[in-house]
């Protein structure tokens, strides 16, 4: 029971990270119907920017953790958002109206490009960061086992919840959110009624990248080590989360992220940690075969 509780806490933390990345996939898919294959790598770039910012702040002697964390989050979001914007402008926008596999192939090229760019400029070795946020609480204790929640886990879940709320407000209540929903319904129609679709699509990538960078910061703080390859696996898992929740649906992305985090954690805890990626990938394959609309997605009617 204690073990289970501990895994539940770990799973929710991991799920929060996946959920934040998954939003980027689901938003882009909702609006332009493409899988932004490079999104996982944008997350990885976000983690690297965070790492460099932390090191820079430490180097100039700024060690107050809350301030450092806030600064890193802001800078990472800004710079990663710029990556998101550039990716769309450079690799996807020129392909609008091209054949159906073109954006996906271009996205794969972009993913390869980003990965190898980071590998070359920052090296292939893993990058450790000393623990920034330490400490935690013991929730439950008996003679054999302690259930604890660390401060970083609390921060991750709280930031995720806060961002989700902010983001829901953005989509539900603002002009930009309305434009995004309009584009999601029908891109051509939205542009006919005066929505600046190009700008809306750009902003979608920007927001998605910013959220992914937050996930990157949290990944870095949680695991304390990153490399240029983290985006690939995390990207596929977050995509799985988006599909499981129902691609195109924002609450679905969050729910899917949580589920994937839990599945992965419990699978490692009770079966085998070597095969934890297999668990996530199998979920992806099974969901796509048996439940392609996901939990909260809408069914698609084939247009003949």
């Amino acid at each position: 029971m204690e073990y289970f509780l501990q895994q539940l806490i770990n799973g929710v933390t991991l799920g929060s990270i996946y959920g934040l990345i998954a939003i980027g996939y689901t938003m882009v898919y909702g609006i332009i119907g493409m899988i932004n294959f490079a999104h996982g790598d944008v997350f990885m770039v976000g983690a690297f920017i965070a790492l460099i910012m932390f090191l820079a702040l430490f180097a100039v002697g700024l060690t107050a953790v809350p301030l450092a964390l806030l600064l890193v989050l802001l800078v990472a979001m800004m710079f990663t958002a710029l990556y998101g914007w550039t990716v769309e402008r450079f690799a996807y926008r020129p392909l609008r109206g091209s054949f159906r596999l073109a954006p996906l192939i271009s996205a794969i090229g972009m993913s390869i490009l980003l990965q190898n760019y980071i590998q070359i400029v920052q090296g292939a070795r893993v990058k450790p960061l000393p623990p920034v946020v330490t400490g935690g609480y013991r929730l439950w204790e008996n003679d054999s086992f302690v259930v604890q929640i660390s401060n970083i886990q609390i921060i991750i879940v709280m930031i995720t919840v806060a961002l989700m709320l902010a983001f829901s407000w953005l989509v539900g209540q603002t002009r930009l959110g309305r434009d995004m929903r309009a584009c999601e319904q029908d891109l051509k129609m939205a542009s006919l009624v005066g929505v600046d679709t190009g700008r809306t699509i750009s902003l979608t990538f920007v927001i998605g990248a910013a959220l992914a960078s937050v996930a990157g910061v949290m990944f870095l703080l949680y695991y304390g080590v990153i490399d240029f390859f983290i985006g690939f696996i995390a990207g596929v898992k977050a995509f799985t989360a988006a599909v499981l929740g129902g691609i195109g649906s924002l609450p679905g992305a969050m729910l899917g992220g949580l589920l994937i985090g839990l599945i992965e954690t419990f699978w490692s805890a009770y079966f085998s940690s070597e095969y934890k990626d297999v668990a996530a990938f199998s979920v992806l394959i099974l969901v796509l075969i048996f439940m392609p609309t996901g939990i909260l997605g809408r069914p698609e009617v084939e247009k003949v």
């Binding site: 450079f90 690799a91 020129p94 392909l95 091209s98 073109a102 954006p103 192939i105 271009s106 794969i108 090229g109 972009m110 993913s111 390869i112 490009l113 980003l114 990965q115 190898n116 760019y117 590998q119 070359i120």
Partner: peptide, 17 residues
């Protein structure tokens, strides 16, 4: 050789465009 994959990535994007 280390730039090979970067060139691959760029070429894939460029060709699609």
């Amino acid at each position: 050789a280390q730039y090979r994959m970067i060139v691959f990535g760029l070429a894939m994007i460029g060709i699609m465009i």
